[in-house]
């Protein structure tokens, strides 16, 4: 009797093991295949600015949950690619972190700037924070040119900016971050000219790195400024939702989705979703500034 129960136990274990293997195998393999929902009736493709891409990606995920019959595909490439793509018909919606220019359309036959419709979907504003010691020593306002000089290492000492004789400790974000790309765009830098001492993968970590030193500077989303890491004014303007919204703050800009002609059908549905409360919540989650209501 005893042996039988033992055996039953073992058989039970065997079954459980087999089950686990089966589950693991199926989940792993299903993970490898592209999961296109069955019965897709419409597809929508977006492409362009890598700054807008995280918003577009997250919104596409949420949108496809709401509308299982629509497949949304998001591509990167940069604002220029997005504007060209929507004008030339490669994408239904072109993402851009700046306004379209006539020069974007020189290669495209028969499309003029007036054929493109801009949909403002979010605001992008970045605060420049410094260590408390630096702020208290009198560096409370710097110019955009000086900021560029700090990040490309033509300015390396706080003395140049009226601060103490301390080397500048430059903190930034990892190269895959949207904020990293934004700073490059806004200051006219690129991957090889934005020279950081330390790269962090979160706003909060940038803040901690700057707060932990007495000589640091870093860039974070507007919500991460506090007394430990005061924000400096840029060209005399302090960063806030209102200065970002009216575009007076130098490190602010609007993010756009472009359509060729007025948005229609699925395009309209998607843009409406991005502009909805849920969509703007995603904008905030992705560390951008939602549009004022």
């Amino acid at each position: 009797m005893f042996i039988v129960t033992q055996k039953e136990k073992k058989v039970g274990m065997l079954i459980i093991t087999l089950f686990a293997i089966a589950i693991l195998t199926t989940t792993l393999f299903s993970g490898c295949t592209e999961n296109k929902p069955a019965g897709t009736t419409a597809t929508l493709s977006l492409g362009g600015s890598t700054t807008v891409q995280p918003i577009a990606d997250a919104c596409a995920q949420a949108f496809m949950v709401l509308h299982s019959n629509i497949t949304v595909q998001v591509y990167g490439g940069g604002s220029g690619v997005g504007i060209k793509g929507v004008a030339g018909g490669t994408y239904d919606i072109g993402d851009a972190s700046r306004e379209a220019k006539a020069s974007d359309l020189t290669d495209i036959q028969g499309v003029t700037l007036s054929d493109l419709v801009a949909h403002k979907i979010a605001l992008d504003g970045i605060a420049i924070i410094v260590s408390k010691e630096i702020y208290n020593a009198g560096v409370t306002n710097i110019s955009k040119t000086q900021l560029k000089g700090i990040y490309n290492r033509t300015i390396t000492n706080w003395q140049t900016l009226g601060g103490p004789n301390e080397a500048i400790f430059v903190v930034g974000r990892d190269t895959s971050s949207g904020t990293y790309t934004s700073i490059n765009d806004m200051l006219g830098l690129n991957q090889s000219t934005q020279i950081l001492d330390v790269a962090r993968s979160e706003n909060a970590q940038v803040k901690a790195a700057v707060a932990g030193q007495n000589n640091g500077i870093g860039y974070v989303g507007l919500g991460f400024v506090d007394a430990n890491t005061p924000a400096v004014k840029l060209n005399g303007i302090s960063p806030s939702i209102s200065t970002v919204t009216d575009n007076t703050y130098p490190l602010s800009r609007s993010l756009y989705m472009y359509t060729k002609g007025p948005a229609s059908g699925v395009e309209q549905m998607f843009i409406d979703f991005v502009l909805s409360t849920d969509g703007q919540k995603i904008v905030e989650q992705e560390e951008f500034v939602p549009l004022p209501k």
């Binding site: 891409q53 990606d57 990167g76 990892d174 895959s176 001492d197 790269a199 993968s201």
Partner: peptide
Amino acid sequence: SKGTTVTSFIVTEMGESSGLQ
């Protein structure tokens, strides 16, 4: 301070990376 390790770089960059990156 410039410098990273393989593991550290993966964990720092993975968050928002996409495509070939």
